[in-house]
Structure formats: C-alpha cells, structure tokens
Simulated scan of single mutants.
Amino acid sequence: MSSHHLFRSREAAVPLILAACAGIGLLALGTQAQAAEQDAVQFSGSAALTSDYVWRGSSQTQSDPAVQVGFKAAAANGFYGSVWGSNVEFAPQTHASSEFDFTVGWAGQVAEHWALDVNVLHYRYPSTTSDLNWTELNGTATYRDNYWLSLGYSNEALGTQKRGLYSQIGARFPVNDALRFEAAAGHYFLDDVYDRSYSHAQLSAIWAVKALASKANVELRLTAHATDRNAERIFGDSLAGSRIEAAVQASF
C-alpha cells in the first residue's frame, strides 16, 4: 500500500518486470499442478469484509469499509505464488480505488519449532493516474507457530524512489480452539522518505466460527490499532492515530 498523499510520475519498468515475474510464478505453479500428482500443489483462497483497511497502522480507505479477496498456489517444495486485492481510497488526485498485491516466495520449516517465509511482494494500483506501484522484499521467522519477527525492505518505499525498512514483532495467544488473541508492534524506518520514522501497535481478538453451509473456515476479528505522533504527521490525523477495525474473513 502506498502513501496516501505522495505520488510521482516515473517509468515503472522494474515494478512491471517484477509483476510479470509474479504472474509467471503463478503460471509455473499452475503448470506443476497439472504435471505432478494431485496433492503436489495446494490451492487456497480467502475473502474478507472489514470496516476499515488498516495497513501498518494507517487507514487505506479513509476509514471506510473494504472488500478483500486473495488466492494462493503452494507447491510441495515450499514455493508459492499469490494474488490479493482490495478497494482503497487515497488522496483524490491519485484516483486510486483498487490495490492488487502479487507475491512469489518460499515458506517452510528450517529447524525444530522454526519456520521461515521469504518473498517478493509487488503492490499495484491499476486505477490510478499516478505511478504508485512499488515492490518490497519480505522475510518472516516464526517460532512454535505463535511468535514471529518480520522485516520488509524496499528501495522504492510507499511508491517513492527512497529506501524504507519495516520491522514487526508479534505473538498469538490461543485461549481454546475457537478463541485467540494476537498482539503486534511495528516500526517503519522512513527517514529517507519523510525525514522521520514511526511506530504502531495492534491488539486483536479472533473468534473462529464453524461454517455450516460450506467447508470454509470463518473468523470474526476485532482489532485495536494505535500509532505514534510521527505517523499522524506523515499520513494525517484522520488516517493514523487510534482506531478500531472489525472484520469477518472466510478461508477456503
């Protein structure tokens, strides 16, 4: 997701190439699915309705609701490709109304109790008249499925030609099979972009609901978000600060 008020007009050759690579990756996984055994590639998806699309502490929809859909193909060797989309609402002059995220990566166990996910993620905004597209390299280490540390680096952070590094640490706390809590804190190093960085935190309560009419797994999520003053100076008081997000998501 890009900055809400920052936009530029430059050639997007590198992001276009990376987006093409993402598409090729998905096509390759699809080809493997036909050539290999039936269980060699797994396909999954998700659909969500949220009261506010909040990304790294700030709203991407001017605090309005969002509809989000994603699909993923994962090979048995750990390589995967995915595409995810949502409606967005940035500054009026950008004309941005939709976001598509293309990801190619690898995920798997690297040691007892430890898992790793590394990927290239391309953010794309097809409806905008400005060049907001950008690409990020991400990595997440997970311990015992409940604790994680993530890093994301880009030399065109938030749709600029500047460097940015995002870090997040988080944990989930299962109460029972249906209820769990999740907490995370992040810091976005954006000194090259805005001459300042910012921090945010979030706390979620997630309730898993059994879907009676289908095989989909349904979750109800309530999340409290908070940012520091630097985030409000960067994105504005109406997009950063404190907010509550409610969402329902179905995974299949």
Rank of each mutant, 00 (worst) to 15 (best):
A205N: 02
Q202K: 14
F235K: 09
R229A: 12
S238R: 14
E219V: 00
V209K: 10
Y194K: 14
A213L: 11
V218H: 07
N230G: 04
A211K: 09
R196M: 04
L239N: 12
S214L: 07
T227K: 04
A205C: 07
A213V: 04
R233M: 06
A231V: 07
N230L: 01
A201D: 01
A205G: 06
G241M: 03
V193E: 13
A213I: 06
L222V: 06
G241R: 02
S204G: 05
G241Q: 11
H225Y: 08
H225N: 12
A211D: 15
A208I: 09
E219P: 01
S197P: 00
T227L: 07
A240Y: 13
G241D: 01
A213W: 11
A224F: 04
K215M: 10
V193T: 15
K210G: 15
A205S: 06
V218K: 08
R229G: 08
A226D: 13
D237R: 13
A211Q: 13
S238E: 15
V193D: 07
A213D: 08
A213C: 06
V218M: 05
R196H: 02
S238M: 09
T223L: 05
Y194W: 10
S197K: 03
L239T: 10
W207E: 08
H200A: 11
R233Y: 11
V193I: 11
E232Y: 03
A216H: 12
S204I: 01
E232A: 03
N230E: 10
D237T: 12
V193W: 11
L212N: 13
A216Y: 06
H225G: 06
L220Y: 05
V218I: 10
Q202P: 10
L203Q: 02
A208V: 06
S199V: 03
A224D: 01
V193M: 07
V193H: 03
R221D: 14
A231C: 02
S238D: 15
L212F: 06
F235D: 08
D228N: 11
K215E: 15
S214W: 14
A205M: 08
F235E: 11
A201C: 03
S199K: 07
A216Q: 12
N217F: 08
A205K: 00
A240S: 12
S199E: 03
A226Q: 12
N217K: 13
I206F: 01
T227E: 07
A224M: 02
D195L: 09
V209N: 02
A208N: 06
K210C: 14
L222N: 02
I206P: 08
W207M: 08
G236W: 14
I206N: 06
V193Y: 01
H225C: 14
E232M: 05
T223I: 02
V218Y: 00
N230A: 07
N217S: 13
N230F: 05
H225V: 03
S197V: 08
Y194F: 15
S238K: 15
E219K: 07
A213R: 10
R221E: 12
D237Q: 12
K215N: 15
L222A: 06
L222D: 05
A213T: 06
A240R: 11
S197I: 01
D237I: 06
